[in-house]
Design a protein around this nucleic acid. Sequence first.
DNA 1: CTAATATATACGTGTGAACGTAAATAAGAA
DNA 2: TTCTTATTTACGTTCACACGTATATATTAG
Lengths: 110, 110
Amino acid sequence: MDRALREEIDQLHAELCQGLADSKRIAILYALSDGPKNVSEIMETLEMSRATATRHLKVLRESAMVNTERDGVSIYYSLADKRVILALNLLREVLAGILSQRKALAEAIL
Amino acid sequence: MDRALREEIDQLHAELCQGLADSKRIAILYALSDGPKNVSEIMETLEMSRATATRHLKVLRESAMVNTERDGVSIYYSLADKRVILALNLLREVLAGILSQRKALAEAIL
DNA sequence: CTAATATATACGTGTGAACGTAAATAAGAA
DNA sequence: TTCTTATTTACGTTCACACGTATATATTAG
């Protein structure tokens, strides 16, 4: 694989990660892992404004991590690929490791 | 788990993802998955300026995804948790899925 | 068609990230 | 100490993101 190709893939890879790099979008993805939801359900469950929910869903849709399906007035958003949740779970384990290491540090001070 | 706690965890989770949300940092992490490297090796292998390499390594160090160890004049950076690579690989699979879907779309046009 | 509801967007603002260039710090060699 | 190499940071610029508020679009009900 030549350099230009690798850089382009890394760029797309980074854009996918950028889609995950917001606490509200992470909350939305976990909420959708329980099943499809419309904007109203998301904004109520996660306590964010309608505009905020819509905008974050747009980001997730544009990065192809969620799909949409209209049902009458409502538009239901669903998770496009469960591996996104698996990746998030792995990173959550990494986070737990970091925090427990910091906890050990904190205790060593005393 | 109450709301404030969940939001704080999601925030930390997002900051970890933010650390992955750059093509050069992704390239660095994959390079380090082959073994520890110093700044010079990274800047040469990945063709980026010294300052850029240092700054990205600083981001990765501050998010605790890499560790450092001094060896004489050089400072060697190493991957702190291999699960980061596992998560990146999962997301790369997701990316492959998205691209193959787009390829199918492209072919359907003709 | 008109009203009502669901979703999406425009505008303005504030904040933070990434970069190149140049200067600063740190450790080892002479 | 002085020189050299490795790493890091400061400065200034540019660009992208997230948000609240207000407005626009789209679908269904009456």
